[in-house]
Write a protein that binds this DNA or RNA. Structure first.
Lengths: 156, 156
DNA sequence: ATTCGTATGTTATATTGTAACTCGTTTGCC
DNA sequence: GGCAAACGAGTTACAATATAACATACGAAT
């Protein structure tokens, strides 16, 4: 089976941070220190991170106690602005590697190690959207995730 | 777009309860009073119910305090036995209307009223499974849900 | 200077989910 | 019958996730 190809850029490190900042400001929102800290913490995790994980990381990097509360607010903002995604079946968040373009994305989450890979396949997500529409749902936002075992964990 | 058709039976009321009991006993599990109560409570909700919602309903029907704890155990059993499904994006559960056959199912959840409809489309879910496999994931269990607005709530 | 909007802090609380241990009943075995 | 094993459920405690309500800080607009 063929995967939909991405010809847009995947950002990382500083480039990702810059792309995120630009995206957020283009939305008319501010790129504050706090938001930068939260984004940085989020981007440094190599698997989906809970709001509390992020609160802890930010607390460390700031040398003061940052409440989960504030992190939730910023994560909500990020999700709305397409800077981050929520992984529903893990109650956790990941940074979006290409905040400039909209996709329904598909997460593959390893039940063993928690590693999560993110694929885009607009034909699949489009099919799901269409199915929802023909059932009378408007403004559909597909949540497509797969729990399973990744190839690394399979070799045990 | 065409929907995969279901030619199997949709159960309701007593028939559903009977089908659930048969399925569970065929799995080698017991159909106890407590399990019957939980199933009944679950089946009576017209939208996904949290474990705590169910605990409350069961408490009422039994005239005594039933802890959420016990309900969770039974819900897990039900999910494993295909008597119920978990709606990940709502942290809630629904009864499976046809416990005798396996499907990856797709939930459409109205963000306004909470109503949830359940569709099966094996070509869509199969596509998601395949995408996961070709990314190296084994034993894939798709979670496909759509948040949106149902046709009833659209007319406001 | 005052007011307003926005971002964040602070505290409290609600909701969802597990862990650990106990008790009672049934079943099978001697 | 007596006993142990297996299972279902009760009970208590707690962990993890999420939201609500209100206070404070600060810059921009009037």
């Amino acid at each position: 089976m063929f995967m939909a190809r991405h010809d847009h850029q995947l950002h990382e490190g500083e480039a990702l941070k810059k792309a995120a900042r630009e995206r957020l400001t283009r939305e008319g929102e501010q790129w504050t220190d706090m938001r930068a800290s939260v984004f940085e913490a989020l981007a440094h995790f190599d698997k989906p991170a809970s709001a509390y994980d992020i609160a802890e990381a930010v607390s460390k990097s700031q040398g003061r106690r940052v409440a989960a509360n504030s992190v939730y607010r910023i994560l909500d903002l990020f999700v709305n602005a397409n800077l981050a995604r929520r992984v529903e079946s893990a109650n956790a968040y990941v940074a979006n590697q290409h905040p400039e373009c909209l996709h329904d994305c598909i997460f593959l989450i390893c039940d063993t190690c928690g590693q999560t890979v993110h694929i885009d396949d607009d034909s699949l997500s489009g099919g799901v959207r269409e199915a929802a529409r023909s059932a009378g749902f408007s403004a559909p936002r597909p949540v497509i995730e797969v729990r399973g075992t990744c190839s690394d964990c399979e070799h045990d």
